[in-house]
Design a binder for these strands. Structure first.
Lengths: 342, 342
DNA sequence: TATTTTTTTGGGATCGATCCCAAAGATATT
DNA sequence: AATATCTTTGGGATCGATCCCAAAAAAATA
């Protein structure tokens, strides 16, 4: 079972290694006759170049990493990560890269393994909780990377949604429908996403005649249970709408409300955040701020590849627009508000 | 920025390449003095061996693949896959392997990329829909692999749960509680998991005085919506219990029932399958057949590594026990049945 | 002390590709 | 026809480690 290699293919085709290599890599300087002959032999024998050898010599492994922070304990129960992963995988397929996944290790471990020499060409990293040291070590390694979400140290290429704007849109929508007492259940306050959505809520409330009431802000952690508990205590305050920092949390909130005998959206309007299928499927259909997470992942890879092509390509910061998707979990008041009944 | 390599470390330590290599690989034949001296230099310089070079020479990339079949359209909306992935990632960390993920490509693409020479040492593949040609091509490649779930061609190492037994346990439980008209919403009938759970249901019903009524079997596809629709039509038959082939589907079924004014478990008892957190979290807490999915993933990697260690290790088939987890979505009839009220 | 055995060390060959330069061949220009 | 230019081809050197064998050093035995 002697393994097939360049030299053998070259001999079979009666050409040199170099020529076979050129055919493999689509170099233009090969005559058509020779190219065809070599390609036929490659097809017939089923030869595939050895990727380790190629990686060693060319200093390109064609493997890119996806680093998901361990500190996210909602890691895979939240549909966000699987869908992000899908987008990234899709792009990797498209661009013929292999995707390596790094999760489930201590930070130190992960840093060490991601920065191993000769393994990755670059990586995409999901910004998680705020922890500067982590990124610093990654920076030192000199491996190109792109951050999904806002990075904790400046000067990095990243891709993000405008969480502040998204939250403002959500709250404005509720305000426009005539809701009077609009609460907010926050995400994890150790993340930019959580902080920014809260900031958007604050701004939208302050700028409206309703004004901002800090008592209507309850802290969650992106987990369903945290929102369930928060919503329970909100029932006592007599709120008539809640902007919840994620769809998954919104489900928890709706559960708490319905257990308290409150209907959505008749008694309480809900707007969520994410627009990822599993969380919005159930009834009532969720009004939510759409993050195109799959596209995110895809674009993040494209950003990374751009960086790999050209070492000194400028640092890019891509902010993706969000979109409010109006469904059933709010909106019943629309007519009422217009009719001026409240 | 001349990169650090073995030779430079060797020179700094005043020894040969070989000795440094031996230190790196924990070969016993290095004197303690020299070993310490070399290790210190490695630590001080932060040197890391180049993995491509190592892989080329040693024919071990220390990368293992995880192949998830594209045909599963419920791919990442079902918590099964993320959690399986977590288990596998955990094992990879433990054993210092890099995990490469293969999803989202056409079968042909995936086969080609997984079997590239010099990339993977082996892989774990989730058995998906039944499609023989797929596996045959993988077999030809001579790369060791382990199947999660039942493989579609015999003679492979695999790890699986006993879906038939699990289904029997679930149905027996419902029978024992006194339910009279027990229906089944199946999973995807193109998968072994779906087929075997149905087989278990059939067997359990046949072996009981209740007998088997094929009209009470409705086909689903592991998607929440399919179960929602199936449950809707079951309400017409007046069933008092449903064994649903997955928790996620069970949620859909419960939704349909409650919309039809039926309470769970008071009017209809439900048993699900999987016991994965997101699906069972909501109320009522789901009675379900527990598959230790994370452990699966972990064990699959261990099985694979065993195979890599020893080329002619025997083919192993690991069947994991399932466990019925009794919660709130069934059980109310227990007293009634004993009291003979029905 | 001389000899055998064991431990430790060094360096050539190798894994399988790509890079790079020079030579050969083909084509264009004067 | 001679020269200049462009295209195509071949082969040596190289990427950075490990493998393997032989030499040197140390330890054990006679």
């Amino acid at each position: 079972m002697s393994s097939l290699n360049l030299i053998k293919i070259a001999k079979m085709a009666g050409v040199s290694r170099s020529t076979v290599s050129r055919v493999l890599n689509d170099h233009p300087n090969v005559s058509d006759v020779v190219r065809e002959r070599v390609q036929k032999i490659i097809r017939d024998t089923g030869y595939q170049p050895n990727l380790s050898a190629r990686a060693l010599r060319s200093r390109r492994s064609n493997i890119i990493g996806l680093v998901l922070p361990q500190t996210m304990d909602t890691l895979f129960s939240d549909p966000y990560f699987p869908i992000l992963t899908q987008g990234i995988a899709q792009a990797c397929n498209q661009y013929k890269k292999t995707l390596a996944l790094f999760i489930e290790g201590s930070d130190k471990d992960v840093v060490q393994r991601v920065t191993q020499k000769g393994l990755l060409d670059g990586f995409v990293i999901q910004s998680g909780k705020l922890q500067e040291s982590f990124s610093n070590k990654l920076l030192e390694s000199n491996i190109p990377f792109v951050v999904v979400g806002r990075p904790d140290i400046p000067g990095q290429s990243y891709i993000d949604v405008d969480n502040v704007q998204g939250a403002i849109q959500a709250v404005h929508h509720l305000q426009g429908l005539g809701y009077q007492k609009i609460a907010h259940i926050t995400g994890d306050m150790d993340t930019f996403a959580g902080k920014d959505r809260l900031a958007g809520y604050r701004q939208a409330m302050q700028d409206s005649p309703l004004g901002l009431d800090e008592n209507l802000i309850l802290e969650g952690d992106f987990g369903e249970e945290s929102a369930y508990l928060a919503a329970q205590s909100l029932t006592k305050w007599g709120v008539d709408a809640i902007f919840v920092a994620s769809d998954r949390m919104a489900r928890g909130a709706i559960r708490a409300l319905s257990e308290a005998g409150l209907r959505v959206p008749e008694d309480v309007g809900i707007v969520g955040y994410d627009d990822l299928s599993p969380a919005i499927a159930a009834h009532p259909m969720m009004t939510t701020v759409r993050q195109p997470v799959r596209e995110f992942g895809y674009k993040a890879v494209e950003l990374l590849l751009e960086k790999l092509e050209d070492e000194d390509s400028p640092i890019r910061q891509l902010i993706i627009d969000v979109e409010l998707i109006i469904r059933d979990s709010c909106g019943v008041r629309q007519r009422s508000a217009k009719a001026g009944c409240f």
